[in-house]
């Protein structure tokens, strides 16, 4: 399976479509995803949102800030590209491979649910060797679950987990937020 990228050339930012494609190919192999992936970069905005549509092809719509080097505006970062494309693809794989059938659609997820799922994805990426700052994701998790020891314990559990179902993830997240299901 291969990754395609649009646009092929960038005018607002100094990004390299070929680099995005290579990083995407590497991620598909590591994650064992057997569907073609199309990455569509919106270079007109510095925001960093990433949206995914799953069909015969997995389409990842990325705002340029998601692949940008925060030290050098408008320049591409290998690390940010890997981490943010990796997160999107892991979420897609979760939905495709089962166990996440009852998860709400992306635009219906609450901020708490997004934070829990992101934590689950980034924890797995870290174990695959992708450089990530765990404290960044803990801070995000705390903002959505509370600045408490219970929330921190839930974060550690999710971060260290593999093979969770949506129901299991949601249960730990709700416990972390102090509202057990």
């Amino acid at each position: 399976m291969t990754v395609s990228v649009t646009p092929a050339n960038f005018s607002f930012v100094d990004f390299d479509a070929e680099l995005i494609r290579r990083i995407g190919d590497g991620l598909l192999e590591v994650l064992g995803i057997d569907r073609p992936v199309h990455v569509e970069v919106d270079e007109t905005t510095p925001l960093g949102r990433v949206r995914t549509e799953i069909g015969d092809t997995i389409t990842v719509r990325v705002e340029s800030g998601a692949f940008e080097d925060s030290r050098k505006p408008r320049q591409q970062s290998d690390e940010a590209t890997t981490a943010n494309l990796g997160r999107a693809l892991l979420r897609a794989r979760d939905r495709i491979s089962g166990g996440f059938g009852e998860a709400p659609a992306d635009d219906e997820l609450s901020l708490r649910q997004i934070a829990a799922w992101e934590t689950y994805c980034v924890g797995r990426l870290a174990r695959m060797g992708v450089p990530v700052n765990q404290q960044r994701w803990k801070y995000n998790f705390r903002n959505r679950h509370g600045f408490t020891d219970v929330a921190d314990a839930a974060f550690e559990r999710i971060w260290a987990s593999d093979g969770l179902t949506w129901g299991e993830l949601e249960t730990v997240s709700l416990e972390g937020a102090g509202t057990p299901s």
């Binding site: 930012v13 007109t44 510095p46 925001l47 340029s64 505006p73």
Partner: peptide, 21 residues
């Protein structure tokens, strides 16, 4: 380090995005 001129030269802006974005 970047100057204000460099910062302002970025043609991207979240401020002028379409309503949807």
């Amino acid at each position: 380090q970047i100057t204000m001129k460099q910062s302002q030269a970025d043609p991207r802006s979240a401020l002028i995005a379409t309503e949807e974005k």
